[in-house]
Structures are given as structure tokens and as C-alpha cells.
Amino acid sequence: MYGEKAVELIRQLHRSPDGSLPPFNEDGIRQVLEEMRVLFEQNQADVNKTVDGAPGLFPGVQLRHAALERNKRCLLAYMFNRMERLRAMRWEFGSVLPPDIKYNLSEQEIQWFSRYNKSLAAYMRSIGGPSGGGLDLTQDLKPPKSLYIEVRCLMDHGEFETEDGTILLLKKDSQHFLQRSQCEHLIRQGVLEHIL
């Protein structure tokens, strides 16, 4: 049946769990586009024949046309949903994606991601007027209650330089008392654990 290959792309996305992106299925997309090309050519031929007076071809044209539109919808939805997920990842993982996720992206998606990064950064810098210094929107996702918080390292992360220039060694199971704004990202990445 027409449209099966296109839906298979959608199913692939549907099956893949949250926080992952299946490899960009270039081959699948090529096959769908090929199916669409054949459909379009057959339709054009049938329309030309109908114009010349051949009867009874109309139902076939309708059927192929519906299949064409369906394929188009599936392809667009495939691209769009991948992009949405990529955008969500920018907020969850930060501006640098883990290498194996990046490996699954297509060339255009990598470009899109870096452009999104740039626009987001430019926007965050622009908040608060020209002298305001900007506002990091990815910070303080929960209302902050104190300036400093206590954190425990969950893995060896190496050296970490705070804003005032002190260098800390983030070693597994060590505990630190840090400014909230400086370690929130590391907590979100799962490197540190917030101790209440």
C-alpha cells in the first residue's frame, strides 16, 4: 500500500524513547521521495490521457493524489518532530550535545542546532537593555531560595573554575558549598547532586 514507507519513518520516531534521537533515516526518505516521484508521473500521464478523452481514469488519480499528500505530511512531520526534539535537547543537555546524539543528526540538523544556539544566546544577551548584561534563561528553573547550596559530586569531573577564580577539584563523593548560579547547570547534567 502507498504511504507505508512514510509511516514507518513516523513509527521509528514514535518508538524511540525520550532523550534520544534515532539516526536520520536518509535512505527511508529517499525511498519515499522516489515513491512520490512515480506517483506524480503516473498522475500526470493519466491526466493527459483524460484530457485527450480517455474515460474512467479519475478514481486512480484521486487515489494517487491522496497518497502524495499523505507522504508529504509524513515527511514534513518527520523533519518537524526531530527538530522539536532537538530544540528540547538544547534546554536539557545544554549547548553541547553528547557525541553519540550528534552522530545521529543530519548535516542540516547540525547547522540548525548551531543556529538555534546562536539565536538563543543573542536573545539572552539582549534582555535587560544594552548595558544590562543579559539574562540566562536556562538558569533558575525553580525559584532560588538561597545564594549558596551544598552539592555532592556523583562522578569525577576534573577541575572547575568558579567565577572568582578559585579552582576546585570535583572528585567523586566530595562535597562542596557553591554559588547556586554556578553549579545549577552541572546539577542538571547529573554531575552534581543538590543536598538539602
Partner: peptide, 17 residues
Amino acid sequence: QSAKIVPSTMVTNYRKR
């Protein structure tokens, strides 16, 4: 516990996998 900063779910799922 609601004031606790937790790792993002996407990161946790990714790590688990």
C-alpha cells in the same frame, strides 16, 4: 524536596540507556 534542583529527565534517561 520541591526546592531541590534535580537533573533533567532527558539527561537521566540518556545516562540510563
